Simulated assay, not measured.
Amino acid sequence: MQAEVYDRLRAEIVAGEFDAGAPLLELVLAERYGTSRTPVREALRRLEQDGLVERGERGMRVRTRSPEEILEIYEVRIALEATAASAAAERRTEFDLIRIRSAMATMAATPTTDPRAMAATNRAVHEAIWAASHNGTVVDLLTRLNNHLTRYPATTLAAEGRWVEAQREHAEILAAIEARDRDRAAERARAHMTRARDLRLAIYRAELGG
């Protein structure tokens, strides 16, 4: 039951069914999911670790969003993505390359009418590159950072021209990894994520009405 409550609450927060800053009262959530308060308490604890909820003056609440947080998340993610790409260029195997190419092919075949599928296949490309780094700590940290970004549901890939641009940037990263060019792989990954950061900030400003 604990896992079920966690999965349901997490999905609803990511889907935007709870506003940023909305209180998450154990009793109310227990009634919502037809359970006791214990599974809810455990789910909230895990979601706090995921970065989706935070402690407020009156208990747990959906974590608020801000441009400062976007900058903080991307400051770290840009560095880690560059590290992952650099390590992948050094350590990748032929199987790693096959997995990255397969993920890229799936992304290319994804219809642009489905933003969620676009985001999922894009993440799969990144996860394949992370895996090719053969650095479990980097993979774990990047996964945690990505959890933070799930609270910003609009995908940057829906921006005009970004879908094609992102795939071209992925191809550049892959080419550097194939060539075992660590510096080039890191530089291309850094540029790719910097562009994503700038688009994420633009989306946030647009949501605020300017």
Results as ranks from 00 to 15, higher is better:
Ile78Leu: 09
Ala79Ile: 03
Leu80Asn: 07
Leu80Tyr: 10
Glu81Pro: 01
Ala82Arg: 01
Ala82Thr: 02
Ala82Asp: 02
Ala82Leu: 01
Ala82Pro: 00
Thr83Ser: 00
Thr83His: 00
Thr83Leu: 01
Ala84Lys: 06
Ala84Ile: 09
Ala84Asn: 08
Ala84Asp: 10
Ala85Trp: 00
Ser86Trp: 00
Ser86Leu: 00
Ala87His: 00
Ala87Glu: 04
Ala89Ile: 05
Ala89Tyr: 02
Ala89Gln: 04
Glu90Cys: 10
Glu90Met: 13
Arg91Cys: 11
Arg91Trp: 13
Arg92Cys: 14
Arg92Thr: 14
Arg92Pro: 03
Thr93Met: 12
Thr93Pro: 10
Glu94Tyr: 09
Phe95Gly: 12
Asp96Lys: 05
Asp96His: 12
Asp96Gly: 11
Leu97Gln: 10
Leu97Tyr: 05
Ile98Cys: 02
Ile98Ser: 08
Ile98Val: 14
Ile98Met: 07
Arg99Cys: 02
Ile100Val: 15
Ile100Asn: 12
Ile100Pro: 09
Arg101Trp: 08
Arg101Gly: 07
Arg101Asp: 14
Ser102Gly: 03
Ser102Tyr: 02
Ser102Pro: 00
Ala103Ser: 14
Ala103Lys: 05
Met104Cys: 13
Met104Asp: 14
Met104Phe: 12
Ala105Gly: 09
Ala105Lys: 11
Thr106Ser: 07
Thr106Asn: 07
Thr106Ile: 05
Met107Arg: 08
Ala108Leu: 08
Ala108Met: 07
Ala108Phe: 05
Ala109Glu: 06
Ala109Leu: 00
Ala109Ser: 05
Ala109Arg: 01
Thr110Cys: 11
Thr110Pro: 04
Pro111Cys: 09
Thr112Ser: 14
Thr112Cys: 13
Thr112Glu: 15
Thr112Gly: 14
Thr113Phe: 08
Thr113Lys: 10
Thr113Asp: 15
Thr113Arg: 13
Thr113Cys: 09
Asp114Leu: 03
Asp114Ala: 09
Asp114Tyr: 04
Asp114His: 07
Pro115Lys: 03
Pro115Ile: 03
Pro115Glu: 06
Pro115Ala: 09
Arg116Leu: 04
Ala117Tyr: 01
Ala117Asp: 09
Ala117Gly: 07
Ala117His: 02
Ala117Phe: 02
Met118Lys: 07
Met118Tyr: 04
Met118Asp: 06
Met118Gln: 14
Ala119Pro: 01
Ala119Ser: 08
Thr121Glu: 14
Thr121Tyr: 06
Arg123Gln: 15
Arg123Leu: 15
Ala124Leu: 06
Ala124Tyr: 03
Val125Gly: 05
Val125Leu: 05
Val125Tyr: 04
His126Leu: 09
His126Cys: 06
His126Met: 08
Glu127Thr: 14
Ala128Lys: 02
Trp130Ala: 07
Trp130Arg: 12
Ala131His: 14
Ala131Val: 12
Ala131Gln: 15
Ala132Gly: 07
Ala132Pro: 03
